[in-house]
Nucleic acid binder design. Structure first.
Lengths: 197, 197
DNA sequence: CCCAATAAGCAAACATCTGTGCTTACGATG
DNA sequence: CATCGTAAGCACAGATGTTTGCTTATTGGG
């Protein structure tokens, strides 16, 4: 008896769950409706039980933060080009590629969505954002070590990072040629001329 | 008999509901926890039944969009200073005041939150954003009418608007002196020198 | 003054999201 | 091969958000 083979329920390993969930998040966020995915929706898409997600990550914010850090660091291995200008341009070029293709746009939006909205909010948000700015900081540090004088983090934020976030958030395509170079030149001055500021 | 006076349930007029709900949205978004307010929460705060909100606005996005357009146009009567530089500086100064005080930060965040996340998303988002950029466009138009040659909308977006949105979204305070002038000078060049672009 | 249209309030159904206790598969260790 | 710790799956409960049918106060027009 028991002709019904109980179920072909195959249990995924923790690593499989992690992978499947990450992919599901990226897929859902890249989907045309582009809404913030819910935990149950992610679970279904990933083919795992939603309780696994709740127990492992606890909140959607934490999950998104995990996805972001994982894939951001994978996507941007931080090219060390040997010059401040080169590093910044590379960063910006990665950003352009990022917001031009859906799967990259996703990450930029995910950064915004993974912002903590709970209790201590403002300082917490700033700290969280600081974590995302580490790649920029390391670019500055390398420049300083080389004896260059990089602009302040704030100036880089305003002139390089901000345009990407706004465009990703609002769906505005960047110019298709020379945009990274344009942004960097605004910040550092044109390659030939001395700095303007 | 009937000693219990049934209830002193006073019904609000449509206009009262509208006002109370708008104010509740602004209050809740300015609150320290800064989370996206839910419809029931808004209703309770406003002292109205939540069904009234559902029936009238239909979705939180629509409600936020309504709040934004109403208060944005009230807050920024668009000072016409007589020069492109003056207008842009005034706009930026309003932006600084905006993200420095909670009740203003609210509007900047609300713009982001009121972005449509539904069906046609990207074009829809862009259109929605375009609506928010009208004030900038009118600044450009006035400048053109005066014979000035204003920068492209895109350049203004990147260099003036973007920094505000990013800072509002991530909780980063702007420099407390000269920030509007700094941004405008980057875009137009310093007042004394000729344009740098 | 009366009447019809509009929209607020109420209650209850409905859907969805969040969290908990328990069982059980998997993998590591001895 | 036996045992144990970890974490996935399941069922269900509780909280929260969304929607609908109905009643009734308010408003404006005849």
């Amino acid at each position: 008896m028991n002709p019904t083979p109980r179920t072909e329920r195959v249990r995924k390993s923790p690593e499989q769950v992690r992978t499947a969930v990450h992919q599901a998040v990226l897929d859902l966020m890249a989907a045309p409706d582009g809404a913030e995915p819910t935990i149950p929706a992610i679970a279904q898409r990933a083919g795992v039980n939603h309780t696994s997600i709740y127990r492992r990550w606890g909140s959607r914010e934490a999950l998104l933060a995990d996805v972001v850090t994982t894939h951001l660091e994978r996507t941007a291995p931080l090219s060390d080009t040997g010059s401040l200008r080169g590093d910044l341009t590379a960063w910006a070029r990665a950003g352009v590629d990022g917001i031009r293709r859906p799967e990259g746009r996703v990450l930029v939006r995910a950064v915004a969505l993974s912002m903590p909205s709970g209790a201590d909010t403002w300082t917490e948000r700033a700290r969280h954002f600081g974590r995302r700015m580490r790649s920029i900081e390391s670019i500055r540090e390398r420049a300083t070590a080389r004896g260059e004088h990089p602009p302040s983090l704030e100036d880089i934020l305003d002139q390089i990072v901000a345009p990407f976030h706004v465009r990703a958030a609002f769906g505005i395509e960047p110019p298709d040629t020379g945009y990274p170079e344009l942004l960097v030149s605004r910040l550092l001055g044109t390659p030939d001329t001395p700095e303007a500021g």
